[in-house]
Design a protein around this nucleic acid. Sequence first.
DNA 1: ATGTTTTTTGACCATGTGATCAGATAAGTT
DNA 2: AACTTATCTGATCACATGGTCAAAAAACAT
Lengths: 210, 210
Amino acid sequence: MTSETKKPERLTRIQRENRTRIREAALEAFSRNGFRGTTLDQIATLSSLSKPNLIYYYKSKEDIYLELFVSLLDQWLEPLVALNIEGDPIEEILSYVRVKLALSRDKPRESRLFANEVLRGCPRIAWFIKKDLKNVVEEVEAKFQHWIDEGKIAAINPRHLLYSIWAVTQHYADFESQITLLQPNKHETFAEAEIYVEQLFRGILTPRNA
Amino acid sequence: MTSETKKPERLTRIQRENRTRIREAALEAFSRNGFRGTTLDQIATLSSLSKPNLIYYYKSKEDIYLELFVSLLDQWLEPLVALNIEGDPIEEILSYVRVKLALSRDKPRESRLFANEVLRGCPRIAWFIKKDLKNVVEEVEAKFQHWIDEGKIAAINPRHLLYSIWAVTQHYADFESQITLLQPNKHETFAEAEIYVEQLFRGILTPRNA
DNA sequence: ATGTTTTTTGACCATGTGATCAGATAAGTT
DNA sequence: AACTTATCTGATCACATGGTCAAAAAACAT
């Protein structure tokens, strides 16, 4: 824990601008081509910076890649943590589903970046999954179980409920190219998807005896 | 259409054996590391053949990759085409779901191979999606719509039903590393998944008025 | 055994890639 | 203007990678 390790907030205007441009370019490249499939030359071209200049701002290709995950993972966990145990269970969960679907529509590159990493066996973010994500998942599971115990939602496996929410919503981002080839109109696809996923999850969440 | 283009079935024992070993090794490598992330050296090591020998059996890295898709796509389409319009709609669909989930459990590498390709925008299999897959999807959609019109299943978007089946079942293969980090016991995960996905899809398929 | 075809490999090549570095240029400060 | 610091780049390196080729080794046929 030397003073070297902490990131100084003292960034010049140029540093802020260029680091942002690099991240934007890197997101574009990494999300489409994966870590190995992305070259510094690609990122350099996309950001209109020279290759050595990239390394002036980030000490390696992996450094850029890892920084992208910080904001991504924050963004994904936030609405999960926000699930309010005092709120109406079905509406709370459906609201999370809607947020996640909107993320697939508006930030598909982030979703693909994550999918790329997990497909490869989480070589670079296993630490995060085992620590932060696991904790959050267990908290969410507890909330779901609480609602089940109170009879507010149907008795289903809470963990797999979460998996299926992730699967269905992220599918629209991760498999976008397949979906687009089958059905070119993106706006239409997401309009239909909103209706469908609501039916799907309302269907399994609603207690049968009610 | 010269005689050059058609693949001769006259393969020697050694050819059959080595081509099989190459495909097995290539599936292992490509499914985990993608096309760009896989090197001929990796495949050579995994198959215990020398690099030039690989090229003796397949004329390029891309050739190996493409051949893997042929058997994969056959395997995936077959149970879709087999959906029997005369059968009990809900059982027909649930049976497809079970087949697909079993494929994720028993052949996860094939699923990841496909996911890898689609994530990258289908650079090498767009022709297949646009032709064969699109036709099959439209046929399946028609069957679903027929069942809806007869009131045998609930009135839902048939295309998105298919998307969600793919999403949920393939998720167990494609995100296996994430799931394993959260919940190490694979057997348990799939046992729970079988129960959950049945509830999920039975829930949305069952007509509400019935 | 001899000849023929199939299979295998060591050596090699052209290209692409992540990263370095010394020095040039620009920006900021006094 | 003079000086200091931050930013930028051309040239270059070491290494990995897909693929080639001539020739050796093994398998097969007679």
